[in-house]
């Protein structure tokens, strides 16, 4: 049965690439209004899981429901997704990228976008191919957060950016997080991100091996999530 308090329900999800099992009978529910960290090393299945949630990949077995619907047209209109690499064309200007997003998504909020551009120190006439890696990441995130989505899915939002850009990205996520929306963030850089998670789920070899409320885990294990991560994967 589908529970209305859950924005995401994942049941017995399995994905194999040929003989290799990327997701192995994975189960996970995500409550509305929460920021959830999916934590695991490279190759643990994070991005495969995300790609199934956003409808880019199809599962081999199992079920995924987002707000009660299978991933598809219906869910794409309420999910704002940040891929783990730049998704903008190199020939674009920031302006063009914004126009594209406005065209694609009815929930795009241009006012929010302008505020974020200013905060990230991006200008509308900058060209994508002249932006540094950190700036591209900031632009991608600006577009993703400018949508008034029910669910934000951010795949490795701070990987490979310098500490200053990292802090800016964290600030942008915190400032734009709204109580009635939910967020899923994957990362292996746990130390920098753990304070923004309500819940965390540790993923290893395509399975969730530990999940729970972040504060509760700190209390129970008497350590920060980063230390727990090192204990599990170190």
């Amino acid at each position: 049965m589908y529970d209305v308090d859950n924005i995401v329900e994942i049941k017995n999800l399995t994905k194999s690439y040929g003989r290799k099992l990327a997701l192995d009978n994975l189960n996970l529910n995500i409550k509305k209004g929460k920021v959830v960290g999916i934590l695991g090393p490279n190759g643990s299945g994070k991005t495969t899981l995300i790609k199934i949630l956003v409808g880019i990949l199809r599962q081999t077995k199992g079920e995924v429901l987002i707000n009660g619907y299978k991933p598809g047209v219906q869910t794409k209109s309420i999910v704002s997704y940040l891929p783990d690499r730049n998704f903008l064309y190199e020939w674009m200007k920031v302006e063009d990228a914004i126009e594209m997003y406005k065209d694609f998504y009815a929930d795009f909020d241009e006012k929010k976008c302008d505020d974020l551009l200013q905060f990230m120190r991006l200008e509308r006439d900058m060209k994508v191919n002249s932006l540094s890696k950190g700036m591209k990441e900031k632009l991608n995130l600006t577009l993703v957060l400018s949508r008034k989505a029910k669910l934000y899915i951010l795949d490795e939002p701070i990987a490979g950016v310098d500490p200053v850009a990292r802090d800016q990205i964290l600030d942008a996520i915190i400032n734009n997080y709204e109580e009635n929306s939910s967020m899923i963030i994957t990362t292996h850089l746990v130390r920098y991100m753990e304070k923004i998670f309500d819940e965390v789920a540790f993923i290893s070899d395509g399975k969730i091996i530990l999940e729970g409320n972040a504060e509760k885990l700190r209390e129970d294990k008497f350590m920060q999530i980063d230390d727990l991560y090192k204990e599990i994967f170190g």
Binding site: K34, V35, D171, I174, N175, Y177, K195, I196, F197, D198
Partner: peptide
């Protein structure tokens, strides 16, 4: 709550608590 959350880079729900 929002100001503290931004300053300390923590989830607003945590500050609320």
């Amino acid at each position: 709550v929002r100001e503290i959350a931004t300053e300390l880079k923590v989830n607003p729900n945590t500050v609320q608590r």
